[in-house]
C-alpha cells in the first residue's frame, strides 16, 4: 500500500544521503562513526516508539519530553540523595506511569483533544516537578561514577552499546505491540475511525490509557539514557522544544500519519535513519544546529507535500478543519 511505499522511499532517501555523506564527508564512513550515530539516535528512537503509538491512535503527546525530564529528575534526585538504584528506578517508574495515566485519562475520559491536554500537562509537569522536586532548580547532575549510570552510558551487550541494544529492544516491543496484539489492532482501529471503534465495542478508553502510558515509559527509558550519558538532567530540554519537534518529525517522516491509523515500526526506523544520517553528516560538516534545523524543517515540509500528493485527503469525508 502507499503507506508502506513511503517508508521505502524515506529509507532510500536516507541511504542516498548516507552514500553522499560517505563519499564527500570525511570521517562519515567509519565504523566508529556508525556506532556513534547509532548511540546518538538511541534516545530519539525510543521516544519515537512511544510517540508513534500515540499518534497512530490519532493522538499526540506534547508532554513526552516533560515526562522524560520529570521522571529522570526523580531518579537523579533519589540517586544523589543516597537511595539505591532499585528504589530510585521504582519511584521513577511509578512517576512515569502515573503521568501517562493522567494524560490518557484526560484524553480518554474527559475527551479533551490530545494536543491541548498534553500541552497543558507538559506545562504542569515541567513547572510542577521543578517546583516540587527541585525547589526551582533547572538542573540535576548525576553521579557519573555510579556503576548503574556508567553501565548505561558506556556498557555493551555483545559488543553493541547498551543504549543501542535498548533502542532495538524497544523497537521490537513496539513492533510486536502494534502488529501482534489486540491492543495494537485497537490502536489502528481507533486511529482509523474512533467512532466506529467505539461502536464495535473495542475498549477504546483503556487502549488510550495504554498508549499514553507506553509513551511515558519510553520517555522514562530515553530519559535514563540521556541523563546517564550527558551526566545531567536539564529542564531546558523541555522549554526550548526542539527535541519534542524532532521526535514528531521522525515519526511523521516515516509515514505515521497525524490523522492516525497509518504507519508501523518500519516507519520509525525509516524516520530515525533519515534524521540521524542528516544530523550526523551535517554535524561532521560543521553546520550549526540552526542550519541543521533549517534543512530538517525543509525535509519535513517536502515529506508532507509528497505524502499529501500520494495520499490526498478526501474532501467528501472531511468535516471540520483536519489538523
Amino acid at each position: 500500500m502507499s503507506g508502506r511505499s513511503i517508508e521505502s522511499l524515506v529509507l532510500a532517501l536516507a541511504l542516498a544521503a548516507a552514500v553522499i555523506f560517505a563519499v564527500f564527508v570525511n570521517g562519515f564512513a567509519s565504523w566508529q562513526n556508525v556506532s556513534n550515530l547509532a548511540q546518538n539516535s538511541a534516545s530519539l528512537t525510543i521516544l519515537s516508539c512511544g510517540m508513534a503509538v500515540v499518534i497512530i491512535t490519532r493522538g499526540l503527546d506534547l508532554s513526552q519530553i516533560a515526562v522524560m525530564v520529570a521522571a529522570s529528575t526523580a531518579f537523579g534526585i533519589l540517586l544523589t540523595g543516597g537511595y539505591g538504584v532499585p528504589a530510585a528506578l521504582a519511584v521513577a517508574l511509578v512517576a512515569a506511569v502515573m503521568l501517562g495515566v493522567v494524560n490518557g485519562w484526560l484524553v480518554a475520559y474527559f475527551e479533551i483533544p490530545s494536543l491541548l491536554a498534553t500541552l497543558a500537562t507538559a506545562m504542569l509537569i515541567t513547572g510542577g516537578s521543578r517546583w516540587a522536586i527541585l525547589q526551582g532548580e533547572f538542573l540535576v547532575l548525576l553521579p557519573k561514577d555510579n556503576p548503574f549510570i556508567a553501565e548505561i552510558s558506556s556498557g555493551r551487550i555483545l559488543g553493541v552499546p547498551l543504549s543501542v541494544a535498548v533502542a532495538v529492544a524497544i523497537l521490537a516491543v513496539t513492533g510486536i505491540l502494534l502488529s501482534q496484539t489486540i491492543v495494537g489492532r485497537t490502536v489502528y482501529a481507533m486511529g482509523d475511525n474512533i467512532g466506529a471503534a467505539r461502536l464495535s465495542g473495542l475498549p477504546v478508553r483503556a487502549v488510550t490509557l495504554v498508549a499514553y502510558v507506553f509513551a511515558a515509559l519510553t520517555a522514562l527509558i530515553a530519559g535514563l539514557i540521556v541523563a546517564s550519558s550527558s551526566g545531567a538532567v536539564d529542564f531546558r530540554t523541555v522549554t526550548n522544544g526542539t527535541l519534542l519537534f524532532e521526535v514528531i518529525m521522525v515519526v511523521v517522516l516515516g509515514g505515521v500519519s497525524l490523522r492516525g491509523g497509518r504507519g508501523s515500526v518500519l516507519s520509525i526506523i525509516a524516520g530515525v535513519f533519515l534524521i540521524a544520517v542528516l544530523r550526523n553528516g551535517m554535524t561532521l560538516m560543521n553546520l550549526s544546529t540552526q542550519a541543521q534545523g533549517l534543512v530538517l524543517g525543509m525535509t519535513l515540509i517536502t515529506a508532507i507535500v509528497i505524502d499529501n500528493y500520494r495520499n490526498p485527503r478526501d474532501p467528501e469525508t472531511e468535516t471540520q478543519g483536519d489538523l
Partner: peptide
Amino acid sequence: LGCGALLATLGTMITFRGLFVICSQ
C-alpha cells in the same frame, strides 16, 4: 496543497526558526 495544518506549520516553524537564527547571527 491541502496538507494538515499542524504538521505543515510545524515544518515551517522549524525551518523559519533555523532561517532566523542563521540570519540573526
